[in-house]
Write a protein that binds this DNA or RNA. Structure first.
Lengths: 150, 150
DNA sequence: TGACAAATAGGAACTAATCTTATTTAAGAG
DNA sequence: CTCTTAAATAAGATTAGTTCCTATTTGTCA
């Protein structure tokens, strides 16, 4: 990620925090910076270990609480998983996911064809739909290559 | 569910277990029967508490292991969640999910319009896609009614 | 009917998430 | 710039969810 883009996203993040009357602490900014640099939909623990390099005595709880707070104000998203620890996604634009069942990697993709997944009338009339996503399960390039060998 | 349909599904379940060299134990059958009667995508703990009525000294581990085994051989599915305990779905037909963010309910639906969600070429050429599902987040009828009151 | 691998019960161990409390700090008021 | 106060943090304890371990039991096949 470009330095410039990063700075821009951090600015936006800070703005959103202010709008929600959240204090801008160095820890929160550090956590957010780590998160937007990660392409791996990390767990709280992974973020904790990364941010610990910059803040050696930050506590796990601070990281975990920050991530939950970020999700509440909508600057990050909790990703759908199939058990295991929560994973966080700093990309809040509409996009879709492929889950590799072998290595657990989650690959983001955007696709025009899914752009306006209409909601069935029967659903739309009774439920308030907030977000839509296509979730694919499969094997990523690396793992399907490995399988071929057997 | 009709008695007849139930018996048929259990027969199929037993067949699949045999195909995978799994022993047909009364516990496994009991757990499976509970699961196919549930419309709530229950957690292991919920299944455990229900099946305990029939098998008073079944252990949680037996239930949990059975459910994982069932998922491995494909007779049930682990449902996508946003943190929290694993949830299991006895419906292995293609279908989609609406997650109520307020009460946690997961509503199944089928929709012709999603029937063949084509996979983008860029994905299809590098990944082996095994299943596809549309995941909607929102508020269910009951919860959106409650919100209206404020 | 007997032999054996697989499954179960029960409890221990482990991992993830949340809570508690004392201390520190961001940010608005003066 | 300093003071005040509510909010946030660190550290450790607690709880929830899941998996592991071991002795015992039980399906299944010969």
């Amino acid at each position: 990620m470009q330095n410039k883009e990063m700075a821009q996203r951090v600015r936006l993040f800070i703005e959103t925090c202010r709008r929600h009357q959240l204090k801008i602490t160095p820890q929160r900014v550090g956590i957010y910076r780590i998160l937007i640099q990660s392409k791996r939909h990390p767990t709280a623990d992974l973020v904790y270990r990364a941010v610990k390099k910059e803040f050696p005595n930050i506590s796990f709880d601070t990281v975990n609480r920050a991530l939950s707070t970020f999700a509440e104000i909508g600057v990050v998203e909790v990703v759908e998983t199939f058990g295991g620890p929560k994973r966080f996604d700093p990309d809040i634009k509409d996009h879709h996911h492929l889950h590799c069942m072998a290595c657990g990697r989650i690959i983001d993709f955007e696709y025009e064809g899914y752009a306006r997944l209409e909601v069935p009338k029967a659903i739309a009339s009774t439920f308030k739909v907030i977000s839509r996503r296509v979730v694919l399960k499969g094997l990523c390039d690396t793992c399907s290559a490995k399988q071929q060998m057997f």
